[in-house]
């Protein structure tokens, strides 16, 4: 499957954020690169159906998505397992191994409120990777991660991205040199 956007425009309060964007997102990772505040999050929100474009068309995006948002969006009073259960209905069998690869412990009973920012970010990514989906939207998934954890996360994203479009919004393309890049910013 592929997702195609054509002539996409979006503005907020008269300020154009996306201007006439045309792009195709095929299975595998596609980086959406741009400086802060130049439309990465807006593009992902349009594709996720959380916003409507002012003009232009989006095709192929009415599928089942999983996402890492700009914020972690976790239920802070619940532990890791509770967060997965809330989002996915149950804790998938592969969750323990995947969380372990991300340096997290599924059986940790502590609420994620007491976790570090990096741990929460990795849990938000794990939730997206474990969710049944046909496409992934990852908005700055490496925020707050050190080099080692970033590399682990990227490896898992690559594995999950096989066979489905993965839109990875980032301002840092380290390790992603082989992925196609959609540049935003300045229209």
């Amino acid at each position: 499957m592929e997702i195609r956007v054509e002539g996409l425009c979006k503005s907020y309060g008269g300020k154009a954020v996306l201007t006439n964007l045309t792009a195709v997102f095929r299975p595998g990772i596609t980086c959406v690169a741009a400086p802060s505040g130049t439309g990465k999050t807006t593009l992902l929100r349009l594709l996720l159906g959380l916003e409507r474009p002012d003009r232009g068309s989006i095709r192929g995006a009415d599928c089942r998505w999983a996402a890492v948002f700009q914020e972690d969006r976790l239920l802070e009073d619940l532990p890791a397992a509770g967060n997965l259960r809330f989002a996915l209905g149950e804790v998938p069998g592969e969750a323990e191994a995947l969380l372990a690869r991300l340096g997290l412990d599924l059986s940790d009973p502590k609420p994620v409120r007491v976790w570090s920012g990096g741990m929460k970010r990795r849990l938000a990514l794990a939730r997206a990777l474990l969710a049944p989906s046909e496409a992934l939207a990852l908005d700055e998934p490496f925020t707050g991660l050190d080099g080692e954890n970033r590399a682990r996360c990227l490896e898992l994203i690559r594995e999950s991205g096989k066979g489905k479009p993965v839109l990875l919004a980032t301002h840092d393309l380290t390790g992603l040199e082989d992925a196609p890049v959609v540049h935003l910013g300045g229209g």
Binding site: L50, A66, R73, A87, L88
Partner: peptide, 16 residues
Amino acid sequence: GKLLELARVYRIPLGR
């Protein structure tokens, strides 16, 4: 509202 958006994207049923 951000958690409600998450619920929408992940298609979390109303009861949950």
